[in-house]
Design a protein around this nucleic acid. Structure first.
Length: 421
RNA sequence: GGGGGAGUGUCCCGAGCGGCAAAGGGGGCGGACUGUAAAUCCGCUGGCUAUGCCUUCGUAGGUUCGAGUCCUACCUCCCCCA
């Protein structure tokens, strides 16, 4: 990488100073292009889930910055490539999703984007494309002759996405082997349709992106560019956004706002500065000030990080509500009514009361009654801040009406409530 | 095409003389200590109507009172020869 190069375009300057930049095929060339005020770039997202999670947030933010600095972002939905399945970073083939599922996922993902970029018809308005529009119309023999002849199997075999499967001795189907060809072709197609000259993505996409540039050159596109962001891990090396309890989703229906806020609040000290730069839009001077805080004071920076990052996804009002809920819960020790809650129908509760094991499972705090038992043994479950020692304990309707708070550890809380009427 | 080896707990890596819910790590979760952090120490890390029952060792059969372990076929992978 060319550490010496000082970008002069707003876009690359911001990406550089905020830590989005991992690799770029030609910084100087791209910088000039960005400066010309006519930069169209895309990032592809496969429709494998009904929402995106924080693992994709870096990419989303890059599109947002692109728009803010005068470029045109294209969000490419992988309606076609999702039917193939990207082998990058996966041990096994993903199960084939039905067209309905893919379509539903696409809608969910589109909603997430509406929070971050402005869609429309204007020059810098974002555009949403779907590669199903062209990939599903290709004819096999024509595609092999026109596109396939440009691919070298020798080089395809050396790509990380392929090598991983080979090294782990897992099967790689011919279907998946073709994924990179589809992605490369997407790039060419987006250039022809919209004049897109930059593809961005996570560092694991480098190979696929460069393959697209190469294909473009052979098929007569103008010079295309590649830019990747670092693969996000926490300071202790764990992959971002994936916990045992599930991914950190960006959609409220899949993860309560409070828990999203908590995710950022609980980051490691050494991640604070990096996360502030990547996931908030606070000015750099402010971030420098926050990052300089030491010891317990850095908690202030974490709260700001949590609120700013949450506001980005869920809106300022919801973020501040989450911050207030956290303040009451952790700083005052009060039971905040705005904690995530589990609404129970009266008929779900047996006359003698609801068993604690079942209650914790229903609340989603533990995955099974077995885990609930184990947590009780380890002293991890609490009812209204009292450690539960008897796994047969019951929670009566009266107790729920009086207010019942279930806790796993010190940080995860769920209120039990009775449905109205 | 011929010969040799391998696939283990649905997060990963990896032991496993026919009695195995299966050693040990890493990761994760909980406890102690803290600042809702890190580091450190301790516990847990198949499911259930639970002193018992059910499901797990690539897939499908077979031998056996009993199979991760032995046999057969198939799938996938690695190595050597052609």
């Amino acid at each position: 990488m060319s550490e010496d190069f000082q970008p002069t375009s707003d876009f690359l300057r911001i990406l550089t100073e905020r830590g989005y930049l991992h690799q770029c095929s030609d910084l100087a060339g791209l910088d000039a292009k960005a400066k010309s005020g006519d930069l169209t770039a895309y990032i592809g997202f496969d429709c494998t889930a009904p929402s995106l999670h924080v693992g994709s947030l870096v990419q989303i933010m890059m599109l947002r910055w692109l728009q803010k600095t005068g470029g045109k972002p294209i969000v490419l939905m992988g309606g076609g490539t999702t039917r193939v399945g990207d082998p990058s970073g996966k041990d096994e083939s993903r199960k084939i999703l039905s067209l309905e599922e893919i379509e539903a996922n696409k809608q969910g993902i589109k909603q997430v984007f509406a929070q971050f970029v402005q869609f429309g018809e204007g020059k810098t308005d974002a555009l949403m494309a779907d590669n199903a529009d062209w990939l599903t119309k290709l004819h096999y023999i024509d595609f092999l002759r026109d596109v396939g002849k440009h691919f070298s199997v020798n080089r395809m075999l050396s790509m990380d996405s392929v090598k991983l499967r080979l090294e782990r001795e897992h099967e790689l189907s011919f279907l998946e082997f073709n994924y990179m060809c589809c992605q490369a072709y997407d790039y060419v197609e987006l250039n022809r349709r919209y004049g897109c000259v930059l593809q961005m993505g996570g560092s694991d996409q480098w190979g696929n992106i460069v393959t697209g540039i190469d294909l473009g050159r052979r098929m007569g596109t103008p010079q295309l560019y590649a830019l990747t962001s670092p693969l996000l891990t926490t300071a202790s090396g764990a992959k971002m956004g994936k916990t045992a309890k599930g991914a950190i989703w960006l959609s409220e229906t899949m993860l309560p706002v409070f828990e999203y806020w908590q995710f950022w609040r609980n980051c490691e000290d050494s991640d604070v500065a990096r996360f502030l730069k990547l996931f908030t839009e606070l000015p750099m001077e402010e971030i420098d000030r926050l990052a300089a805080l030491q010891d317990a004071e850095i908690n202030e920076a974490k709260k700001i990080l949590a609120t700013e990052a949450t506001a980005m996804v869920h809106g300022r009002a919801a973020a501040e509500r989450a911050a207030e809920t956290a303040r009451q819960t952790f700083e005052e020790g009060v039971v905040a009514a705005s904690l995530p809650s589990l609404i129970l129908q009266a008929n779900e509760i047996p006359a003698e009361g609801l068993g604690v094991l079942a209650a914790f499972v229903k609340a989603g705090l533990v995955a099974s009654t077995g885990e609930a038992r184990r947590q009780i043994k380890g002293g991890g479950l609490k009812l209204n801040d009292e450690q539960i020692s008897d796994e047969k304990a019951l929670i009566t309707i009266e107790a729920i009406e009086a207010g019942a708070k279930l806790s796993l550890g010190k940080k995860k809380h769920v209120l039990l409530r009775l449905a109205e009427g």
